[in-house]
Design a protein around this nucleic acid. Structure first.
Lengths: 211, 211
DNA sequence: ATCAAATTGTTAAAAAATTCACGATTAACT
DNA sequence: AGTTAATCGTGAATTTTTTAACAATTTGAT
């Protein structure tokens, strides 16, 4: 399979989101300039990214929204991704109800919580099981991604569990770093870090403007 | 103020998080190698990053955890950041309760929701106001970041409101792109995008391993 | 006192990503 | 048909980021 620049792939998802909205609005064509406005990126960047996947734009007209969507999906989201969630507190519930997951490409196959109160319930059609059923259920289904949304004291333990079940992709929402063996990929999403980084980024860009 | 590489700044927050855990454990020194294991980065990268801020490591011993923390904070988080939140649904509630915000550098000064039921309540000591009070409250306080956690149909409207209040930094959790004037910075956090991007990233790295 | 091992910090090289400049193409208008 | 304006696609230049290589420093052991 052809390799694409990592950043291009990430932005492809952003383009897909924008295209979905445009298609819903009944738009047939969109230019790189308009996509730039929508996504807060630059038109050149967008054309460069898209050209990595193929030539689909029409000069003077722009890109056919459906065709471009199809092209990006072809290279970037071939399959449905199966996810399990650990921790059905505030954040976990929010994830289970998150609208982006109900459509298309991401399927949460099960959720787990240590609180037996929550067992045997379901949110949004997704069953919630007690922790000790996790190993069995994960190994029966085909799971690519494990999501950790438990209190930080428990996150390493869940990470170990996921690794022992053969899950190689972990998204960690606990504000703590977890250790995993080589070959396992971790994406930490720490809301505090995101906020501070954004603020710093802005400060430095603002300083650059005035310079 | 000195400029640092953008990525270095982002990683500085990751180091800070790791240092906090180490300090809590009573650790006095940590080597770049150990930090690499904790953070899933490389030791070289970490040394490079840290050296941008100053010389604080001791050969053969590593970094003094407290001193390193102090150094990073000096350059990277000088001030408390003030945040307002729009939308107190599942995700909004999770943010208000998020443990990383209760400590130190991030202060959520107010939350807003269109549902009058939620007004006059408070989560975690943070008051929830009706939407129409937003403008007044934001302009009275010093707010750097606005967070959008409302249903996607309403997100553009909230973005416009934030812009009109002079907030120049927006974190958008709606799975939709919002338009803002130049000079305003937006960070989109779309959970679906994060998951898919992680999965693609992993796939491509795995392919690289076998090549 | 000397040597060995571990670790930092730095300079240079390589790789990745972005931006620029501009030719090529198309649609609309006259 | 010819002209103009808008837009794509791309190769080169630039900038940013990462990786590599290695000298310098410190501790601990003998």
């Amino acid at each position: 399979m052809k390799r694409f620049p990592q950043r291009t792939i990430i932005r492809a998802f952003i383009y897909l989101r924008a295209l979905d909205a445009l298609i819903e609005d009944g738009r047939v064509y969109v230019s790189s300039g308009e996509l730039a406005t929508i996504t807060s990126l630059t038109d050149v960047q967008i054309r460069k990214d898209i050209s990595a996947f193929g030539k689909v734009g029409k000069p003077r007209v722009g890109y056919d929204t459906r065709r471009l969507k199809q092209l990006l999906e072809e290279f970037v989201v071939q399959n449905v991704v199966h996810v399990v969630l650990f921790g059905v507190g505030n954040l976990g519930s929010a994830i289970l109800r998150y609208p982006g997951f109900q459509e298309d490409k991401i399927k949460i196959v099960a959720a787990f919580d240590s609180d037996p109160e929550k067992g045997d319930k379901a949110i949004n059609g997704i069953s919630i099981y007690p922790l000790d059923k996790a190993k069995m259920i994960i190994q029966k289904k085909h799971v690519e991604i494990g999501v950790i949304a438990v209190p930080k004291q428990a996150s390493q333990q869940i990470a170990d569990l996921l690794v022992s079940c053969g899950v190689e992709c972990v998204v960690n929402f606990s504000p703590t770093n977890i250790s995993v063996p080589k070959g396992t990929f971790v994406k930490n999403i720490d809301l505090a870090v995101e906020f501070l980084a954004l603020f710093c980024d802005m400060s430095s860009k603002k300083a650059a403007q005035h310079a």
